[in-house]
Nucleic acid binder design. Structure first.
Length: 262
DNA sequence: CGTTATGTTTCACT
DNA sequence: CAGTGAAACATAAC
């Protein structure tokens, strides 16, 4: 379930399980998950160690003792799984590293939208992908600059990784719900104050979600995520949450609560 | 059987 | 060239 807060949790998980142990084997059972040749992963990972991680948005960069940096993207259904017994390999653990202590690290990916890549430099990779700064660190100034040229729905723009890296579908919905702004409001119509409100809501969603380890039931009651489904009711108005499509994605919002800015 | 799902990439069009 | 929207990708679950 990976958006920014989930991937932050995965980072912490990998930091606490996989670092500073020699890799003795690399195995991938479906090459479609690899952006670079399988032989390259063998070459640059086996007999090396993972030494540290850096997360930018939903991308996780894993530094190694070797010449390359491992890049992991979890897609829609990815998650890490560190386990001991070989027979405990998870059903969708399509990529597996084995460490010198006999433990294994599986990259689970049910829908196979996630992938691994190798790179020489994080900054270059970030630039090539047109990735913005991580939404957690992004300044208000840079956020405004990125929004400046846009003429489309704010919801779609919030999910654009070149605007604020890490915001995905549920976070964008919650940010706009907490901002009381309709997801189809055009960016060009938003006031300075609207944008400040959205920026603050974005930071709040991120910090609250990370603090609660992306465990939705623990989020405060005012989070839309508890009612992000058809037939559910808005905690503010009591009216039904509506579902529409914005930017090609299912979008949930509270019609009376969230103003369409024009 | 048809629809939907937490994401990114590609491609055609403006 | 930049921005936009739709389609594609692969698969499970409802």
């Amino acid at each position: 379930m990976p958006e920014l807060p989930e991937v932050e949790g995965y980072k912490i998980y990998i930091d606490s399980t996989c670092l500073n142990k020699e890799i003795t084997a690399f195995e991938c059972r479906d090459a479609r998950l690899l952006k670079t040749a399988s032989a390259d992963f063998e070459k640059y990972l086996v007999n090396e160690k993972l030494t540290g991680t850096k997360r930018i948005g939903k991308y996780l960069f894993v530094k190694t003792s070797g010449k390359k940096i491992l890049v992991i993207h979890f897609g829609m259904t990815g998650r890490p799984n560190y386990y001991k017994e070989k027979e405990d390999r998870p059903k969708y653990g399509h990529i597996v590293l084995t460490f010198e202590n006999g433990f294994h690290f599986a990259f689970e990916n049910k829908r196979k939208f996630g992938w691994w890549d190798l790179t020489d430099a994080i900054a270059d990779y970030k630039a090539a992908r047109k990735l913005s700064d991580d939404a957690r660190d992004l300044s208000l100034e840079d956020f405004k600059t990125a929004l400046g040229k846009r003429k489309t729905a704010i919801k779609a723009v919030l999910m654009d990784q070149s605007v604020a890296a890490g915001i995905g579908n549920w976070m964008a919905d919650d940010i706009l719900y907490q901002s009381k702004i309709h997801p189809e409001s055009k960016v060009q119509d938003l006031s300075e104050k609207n944008i400040d409100t959205i920026f603050k809501a974005m930071k709040n969603v991120i910090e609250v979600a990370i603090k609660n380890e992306a465990h939705y039931p623990d989020f405060p009651e005012y989070f839309l995520i508890h009612n992000r489904k058809e037939g559910a009711k808005c905690v503010h108005t009591g009216a039904e949450i509506k579902k529409i499509k914005v930017g090609g994605r299912s979008t949930y919002f509270s019609p009376e609560w969230q103003e369409l800015v024009k």
